[in-house]
């Protein structure tokens, strides 16, 4: 499904701020894998997702989806395979446009846009049904501007938009980090439901170790631009937060440095 082969990325090369963000990273995802990604600050988690999505070009290596080499595709071209939800709730939706307009934009992800009407009346029933499943009452506000929604509602909508057109790969970059605990839980529940229903291959960055263990079938830990721990199946289910902390110290020789993770355990 997804193949990341020896990918390297250095920011601000040859300057005093040089930062090796990805250090020859290798990752293979099987169809239907739901992988949680954890790691300290600056471990390269977001960079890895951004490289897959094509936000910045990679320095070397190869990224393939279903055998198609997308390493040199621009961001908008990769979007045909990839659905994304960002950490910032403001980033995933167009605030000045209606809910249904946003959904119509997302429904056309990866398709050629032409001069036919931007939102056809027969689509509206489909959007109504899809958004009703979120259980947030948004189906009665289809013509409201998205800017009127709360952060949690916007993240749930972004998630729905990312999966309205089934993506080959779903990228979730700490998509609940900016939400209050109760809303975060709700959005996480919706995430699991949608991923299960569509059997989506998913990469989810989280700062919550408990979630990282309990959600998905595989967990990877990153440090200094490398994957230092990769666990799946039964072994993953048996993990405890303490095990993860110990693994981190073993692999990196340092104490776990992400305060938020320590606090969230």
């Amino acid at each position: 499904m997804l193949d990341i082969k020896n990918v390297r990325k250095t920011f601000n090369k040859n300057t005093i701020n040089e930062k090796k963000a990805l250090n020859g990273i290798n990752l293979h995802l099987n169809e239907g894998d739901f992988v949680t990604v954890i790691g300290g600050n600056g471990a390269g988690k977001s960079t890895m997702l951004n490289m897959v999505a094509g936000v910045y070009p990679i320095d070397s290596g190869k990224i393939e989806i279903d055998g198609i080499n997308i390493s040199r595709y621009p961001e908008y071209k990769r979007a045909q395979y990839i659905g994304r939800v960002f950490q910032d709730p403001m980033m995933g939706t167009a605030a000045g446009m209606e809910i249904q307009e946003n959904m119509a934009l997302a429904y056309r992800r990866g398709k050629t846009r032409g001069l036919s009407w931007g939102i056809k009346s027969e689509e509206k029933a489909f959007y109504y049904e899809a958004i009703q499943k979120l259980g947030l009452g948004l189906q009665d506000r289809m013509t409201n501007k998205v800017g009127l929604l709360s952060g949690g509602q916007r993240q749930a909508l972004t998630l729905l938009m990312a999966t309205l057109q089934k993506p080959k790969l779903l990228l979730l970059d700490e998509h609940t980090a900016a939400l209050d605990p109760k809303t975060a839980r709700k959005v996480l529940d919706i995430t699991q439901e949608i991923v299960k229903e569509q059997n989506l291959t998913t990469l989810m960055i989280t700062h919550n170790m408990k979630d990282a263990i309990s959600i998905g079938n595989r967990l990877i830990m990153m440090h200094e631009g490398r994957i230092i721990y990769d666990v799946s199946g039964e072994e993953k289910k048996k993990l405890e937060v303490e095990d993860l902390l110990k693994k981190f110290e073993e692999a990196s020789g340092e104490e776990f440095s992400n305060d938020r993770m320590i606090l969230a355990k």
Binding site: E75, A106, R108, R113
Partner: peptide
């Protein structure tokens, strides 16, 4: 409205 959003939806901005 939001360039990063529409690029993620596959539009060449």
């Amino acid at each position: 409205n939001n360039e990063s959003m529409i690029r993620a939806q596959g539009v060449n901005t």
